[in-house]
């Protein structure tokens, strides 16, 4: 890196106090039918372009599947949307009025973007109930969190989510003691508790049995409509079973987009998946 670039890096604006330019993210404006706009986004790590001029849009209520070989940039794409990684260029808008690139992770989450991680991460020292309680939508300011007491409806809500994720019997079990699959479910449960408008789900069925997969599929399809859902998955059968529209990500950009059949018959996709 040249000295000049280094100096620039040191004085990067986005690391300075940007509370000056706050924006209102209490209401998402989706009057044009689109909930997510990803336009012209690129990011590189030490010279390697992980995302390369990526463009795609998610409609309100849509269930979109994203597939692509390892290292295609799927997780990185989610990192960008949820504020974990800052892109080098491009824009990401939530609805028409919320610029996600200007927001921190919690602000994005509060605005209504929920995420399930590829590697299930739950709070291992807390029991299942507490995990869900913490994820529950509501005012998450310091004082409100301190004062928060569970109302009976909220109690019921947690109970019903535990029902959905099949963990009702072990509400008091420490999350750290759960199996991989159970952790996946718990993370999905936490996502449900957050009640986000847009769900980003990274490899939800890894480590699940076929029955559980079907259940997950049902769950995700039922969520679509009221919520918008983006699912990243390697399991083609699973994708086929739930997908209406599929996007293929390759080397950081969209290679093809369409129904599962269209995509599967796309010559370039076949090349990418089947070899050179």
């Amino acid at each position: 890196m040249s000295a000049l670039a280094k100096i620039r890096e040191t004085f990067r604006r986005d690391q300075v106090f940007d509370f000056v330019n706050k924006q209102d993210y209490s209401r998402v404006d989706t009057s044009h039918g689109q909930i997510l706009y990803v336009e012209d986004v690129s990011v590189s790590f030490d010279g390697f372009k992980a995302i390369n001029e990526l463009n795609f849009y998610i409609e309100v209520g849509e269930l979109r599947c994203m597939i692509g070989p390892n290292g295609a940039g799927k997780t990185t794409m989610m990192d960008i949307i949820t504020g974990k990684t800052r892109p080098d260029q491009g824009s990401v808008w939530f609805g028409q009025n919320i610029n996600l690139l200007k927001m921190t992770e919690p602000e994005i989450a509060q605005a209504g973007v929920g995420r399930k991680f590829q590697k299930p991460t739950v709070f291992e020292h807390h029991d299942i109930f507490e995990n869900l309680e913490m994820a529950m939508a509501g005012n998450k300011g310091v004082w409100s969190t301190f004062r928060a007491r569970l109302s009976s409806e909220q109690h019921d809500q947690i109970a019903s989510v535990m029902e959905i994720i099949g963990l009702s019997d072990c509400a008091k079990q420490r999350a750290g003691a759960l199996s991989h699959g159970q952790k996946q479910w718990l993370e999905i449960g936490m996502l449900l508790m957050q009640n986000p408008k847009l769900l980003l789900v990274d490899e939800p069925v890894a480590g699940m049995t076929h029955q559980e997969m079907d259940k997950t599929g049902e769950l995700l399809t039922s969520l679509a409509g009221e919520h918008s859902v983006v699912v990243v998955e390697h399991d083609m059968d699973f994708v086929r079973s739930i997908a209406k529209k599929v996007s293929v990500l390759h080397q950081g950009s969209i290679l093809a987009e369409g129904s599962m059949d269209e995509v599967q018959n796309n010559q370039r996709v076949i090349e990418v998946y089947l070899g050179e």
């Binding site: 919690p106 991680f117 991460t121 709070f123 913490m134 939508a137 998450k140 969190t145 936490m190 957050q194």
Partner: peptide, 11 residues
């Protein structure tokens, strides 16, 4: 797990 807490919306 500090990072995870951010993604469920806590500052």
């Amino acid at each position: 797990t500090e990072d995870r807490v951010r993604f469920i919306g806590y500052r």
